[in-house]
Computed example of a mutant assay.
Amino acid sequence: ISRFKMTALLSLLLGAGPLLLLALNPVHGSDNATLPLVLWHGMGDSCCNPLSMGSIKKMIEETIPGIDVLSLMIGKTVSQDTENGFFMDVNEQVSMVCSQLAQDPKLKDGYNAMGFSQGGQFLRAVAQRCPSPPMKTLISVGGQQQGVYGLPKCPGESSHICDWIRKELNAGAYTDIVQKHLVQAQYWHDPLNDDLYKKHSLFLADINQERVVNETYKKNLQLLDKFVMVKFLQDSVVDPADTEWFGFLKTGQAKETETLQESVLYKEDRLGLAAMDAAGKLDFLGTEGDHLQFTREWFNAKLVPYLR
C-alpha cells in the first residue's frame, strides 16, 4: 500500500486537522515557582502551527506569566515534525524526546506534560520509561490510552466502505513493516485478534503491559502526582472514545465497551493505575464537543489549575 494511500486512510481514522481553539478572555496570574510545561502535538499537527500548538503555547504563556513552555518538535524542521507523526517509529520518537528532556537544564527539577491526541499516550510512555527529569503531572487531552479500532466519520450510507478499509488496515496492521513505519498501526488495537495484537504491537502492547509486567514501568508511572485524562463527549474522530479515559472494547467483540475499572489491566493492577486511583492521582474530565474542540474558557478553568 502506498505511503500516500495509507496516510489518507489513517488521517480518516484519527483526524489529521489541527485542533480548534476558541479564544475568549484570558485568565491572568503569576507564579514564579511554576514548573515548566512540555507539550506533544497530535497526528497531522506540528510543534509550532500558529492555529493549533503555537496558539496553545502562546495562550498558556499569557495565562501563566513566566512559565517555560516546550512544544516538542520531532525532527529538525516543522515539515519533518508533521511527517514523523505518521511514519517514525514511536519507540524511536519516545527515545528522542527522553534524550531531549534529559539535556534541558530548565527541566532538571521536574516538569508537567500535556499531550494532545496521540501525544497523550506518547508522553505516558515518556513517564514510564524515562523518570529523569521527573514528570509531575501528565494531562492527556483526547489521548488514545488503549489505542483505536475503527473508522469514524463515515459519510452517509458509506459505512460498508469504512468497514472494508478497516479490514484492509487490520489485515496489515500487525505486519513487521507496517508496525515499524506507520505510527497509527502501533496503537491499532484489534479486540477480535487479541493474541495477534499482544504479540506484534511494538508500542501500545508494551507500554500497557499486555505481554509481561515491567515493574519499572509500573513504578515510574506511579511517581506522577496526577494523571489527568480528558474525554471529548461528542468525539467522532477517535473510536472508541472510551479509550480517552483508558477504557476500551471488551475483548472478543467490537460493540460493547468497558471502563478502565472493569478491565483486566486495572483489576490485576498491571500498570499501577488502581493504586493511583485509590491514592486520588487519577482525574477523569469530560467536555462537550468533538475531538480536540474546546474553548479557552474551559481550558483555563479545567486544565490551567494543574499547571500552577
Rank of each mutant, 00 (worst) to 15 (best):
R3P: 03
F4M: 08
K5E: 12
T7S: 09
A8Q: 09
S11A: 07
L14F: 12
G15S: 07
A23M: 14
A23L: 15
N25T: 10
V27N: 11
H28Y: 10
G29P: 02
L37R: 03
H41A: 02
M43H: 07
G44P: 03
M53F: 01
S55I: 04
I60M: 02
E61H: 04
I67H: 00
D68N: 03
S71M: 11
L72A: 14
M73D: 12
V78S: 14
T82W: 05
M88N: 13
M88W: 14
M88G: 11
N91G: 13
V94Q: 11
V97Y: 10
Q103N: 15
P105D: 12
L107M: 07
Y111P: 05
N112P: 03
M114D: 09
G115Y: 07
S132H: 14
G147A: 10
V148T: 09
P152A: 12
K153L: 15
D163P: 03
I165G: 05
Q186N: 11
F203S: 10
A205H: 15
Q209Y: 10
V212D: 09
T216M: 10
L223V: 01
L223D: 05
L224R: 00
F232M: 07
F232D: 13
L233Y: 07
L233G: 09
V237G: 05
K250D: 09
A254K: 14
E256Y: 13
T259K: 15
L260T: 15
Q261E: 14
V264S: 15
K281N: 01
F284C: 06
F284R: 10
H291C: 04
Q293H: 11
F294S: 13
F294V: 13
V304C: 02
V304K: 01
P305E: 04
